[in-house]
Amino acid sequence: MKFLYILIRSFSIYLFAFFFFTAHCIEKVPEVSKTVEIPELGLILNYEGWLYEEFDPNADPKNYSQSKTKKPIKNDQPVKVMFYLFDSDKEKGSEIRTNINFISEAIPSKYSKATLEDYVASIGALYSNMYKDYEVLSVPQRCAFGKNKCMFVEAKFKLTNSDKSKEVHTFQWIFLKESSFYIFTGTVPENELGTKGKKIIGTIQTLSESKTN
């Protein structure tokens, strides 16, 4: 009987330890991060805190106009929208939703020798004609993610297609690889820059080299 009592007690302790350590391990298992592969650059982006949407050329353009900063881009153009990230915490009453979009643009053969600096200058001239009071806020900076060099451009402009003129802030990271430019553009209302601007920059800083590259 004494042996049976010891056996039952030992088994009970084993079960208790098993469930304790199992529960403890389950609690420590981290959540799977939201990431998207960018094979064109050999990078991975963590988009925690954002809503991911791929561009559908057949979708209603209104679904992609939440930022109201750009006209929808047709799929037959050299500019191709890869995906959108919309801020998951939209500010109440805000007409402009903070977002990040990623596009690629093939370089025409006649501009095959274009550099990052050339492209930055050309889009600056283009945006100056498209948007009211477009202003580059600092000298474009060189940066790199993994083996990819890029240019960082910060700017702002005003929207005039609403009842009241609204100021918008943009951050752009521009890459050049294999005859194409790749651009991440973060857009945020100027009055939300303090918090949302940091979120955009923090997200882009998660770019890291893909292990499969």
Rank of each mutant, 00 (worst) to 15 (best):
F102L: 05
G197H: 03
V81E: 03
N75L: 05
E167D: 11
K34L: 05
G202A: 06
P39I: 11
S65H: 09
E178F: 01
N75A: 14
M130T: 10
E209T: 14
P57W: 13
R9W: 07
G42A: 08
G146P: 04
I103Y: 02
E40K: 10
E117I: 13
Y64F: 13
L41A: 10
M151T: 10
F11Y: 06
Y47S: 04
L116N: 14
S208A: 12
C150L: 03
I44A: 11
L193N: 08
K80H: 10
K177M: 05
L51D: 14
L15E: 06
T195G: 02
I8Q: 03
L176S: 06
G197A: 10
Y127K: 14
L4H: 06
N101Y: 05
L15Q: 09
S112P: 01
L51R: 06
L137E: 11
E209I: 06
G146A: 04
R142P: 01
K166S: 14
E91T: 07
E53M: 11
E154F: 04
E209D: 07
A125F: 09
D60G: 06
L176A: 07
Y182Q: 06
K211I: 09
S179L: 11
E192V: 01
I201P: 00
F145K: 05
K158L: 14
I26C: 07
F157G: 07
T203M: 02
I183W: 01
A106K: 08
D133R: 02
F171E: 09
S104E: 12
L45D: 10
K158P: 01
Y111K: 13
F102I: 04
S33Y: 00
S208E: 11
E167T: 15
R142G: 02
K199S: 07
N46C: 12
V32Q: 15
K71Y: 04
N161T: 14
F3I: 10
F18M: 09
K113Y: 03
Y134W: 06
F175H: 06
E209S: 12
F55H: 15
N213A: 09
F152C: 05
K2W: 08
T187F: 01
A155F: 03
Q141V: 11
V79L: 10
I183E: 04
N129R: 08
E192D: 05
I103H: 02
Y119V: 09
L193M: 13
E91V: 14
K199C: 04
Q66H: 12
Q172N: 12
Y47R: 04
S67W: 00
L137D: 08
D76R: 05
R142Q: 12
R9T: 13
T170M: 05
T195Q: 14
F86H: 11
T69W: 00
I73E: 09
I13D: 03
T35W: 00
K199P: 00
Y131A: 02
N101G: 03
K62L: 14
E54L: 01
L85V: 07
L176R: 07
M130E: 13
A106Y: 01
F16V: 15
C25V: 15
F171Q: 08
L45W: 03
E105R: 12
F175S: 05
C143S: 13
P57C: 10
P57G: 08
P78V: 08
K71G: 00
M130C: 00
Y131R: 02
Y119S: 12
E178W: 01
Y14M: 13
Y119L: 06
